[in-house]
């Protein structure tokens, strides 16, 4: 009995969204949306770049996401249940939908390799170390590139956007446990390719 009560209470509990004050400000004054935009532009752009592997396509997608978010902000609801989200989760759902729409429209999966591996910053004093690291990065990129969409996306959201399994689950419409399994499988796949 107590267990159930606790469960219900936890379902009602709304975790504090760090963006709540900024979202509230933007609801009353669209000019305040710029704070949210500046905070998340690099995250959304990175996600788009990893998925499209093209700088111009990533810019177009980023633009679509923020314009959609600005227009839809009055309808955004922060909720604690599985369907609800924080602002960041909501924003990435928009990004994921925009990406899916774009792919449907273009009827193609971009094939151009992301030439970002050479731009990886590192503390290597020895150029030989840097070359080795760059080679490792290139092999890792190739392995990630070959993953099925969902596995690649969980890795990008987990490692690039530094999201928890719960947040990723809410973005992808999966349970936290399912995301953990996806991450585990994706890492095993990449490990095999790096072998």
């Amino acid at each position: 009995m107590f267990g159930r009560g606790r469960e219900e209470a936890s379902e009602r509990l709304i975790p504090f969204d760090v963006d709540r004050p900024a979202v509230e400000s933007a609801r009353h004054d669209p000019g305040a949306f710029e704070t949210l935009y500046r905070k998340y532009v690099a995250q959304v752009y990175s996600f788009a770049l990893y998925e499209t592997r093209d700088r111009h396509a990533a810019e177009d997608l980023t633009e679509q996401v923020f314009l959609s978010a600005l227009r839809a902000l009055p309808r955004f609801e922060e909720r604690s249940d599985g369907a609800g989200s924080t602002f960041r989760v909501w924003l990435f759902r928009i990004a994921r939908n925009a990406l899916a729409n774009e792919r449907r429209r273009a009827r193609r999966h971009p094939q151009a390799p992301l030439d970002a591996a050479s731009a990886i910053p590192g503390p290597w004093a020895d150029p030989a170390d840097e070359v080795a690291a760059s080679d490792l990065a290139a092999r890792a990129w190739k392995a990630i590139d070959g993953l099925p969409d969902e596995r690649r996306q969980v890795l990008v959201l987990r490692f690039v956007e530094e999201m928890s399994a719960r947040e990723i689950g809410r973005i992808m419409g999966r349970s936290e446990g399912a995301v953990r399994v996806l991450v585990h499988r994706a890492l095993r796949s990449v490990a095999r390719d790096l072998g």
């Binding site: 990533a58 591996a117 690291a133 990065a137 890792a140 990008v156 490692f159 690039v160 095993r188 490990a191």
Partner: peptide, 22 residues
């Protein structure tokens, strides 16, 4: 294997910033 791969990806999967102009 997954732990070591995670360490590699943590270094390799960097975040990109769009151009200032964009």
């Amino acid at each position: 294997a997954p732990l070591e791969t995670a360490d590699i990806l943590q270094r390799v999967l960097i975040r990109f910033h769009p151009s200032f102009r964009f």
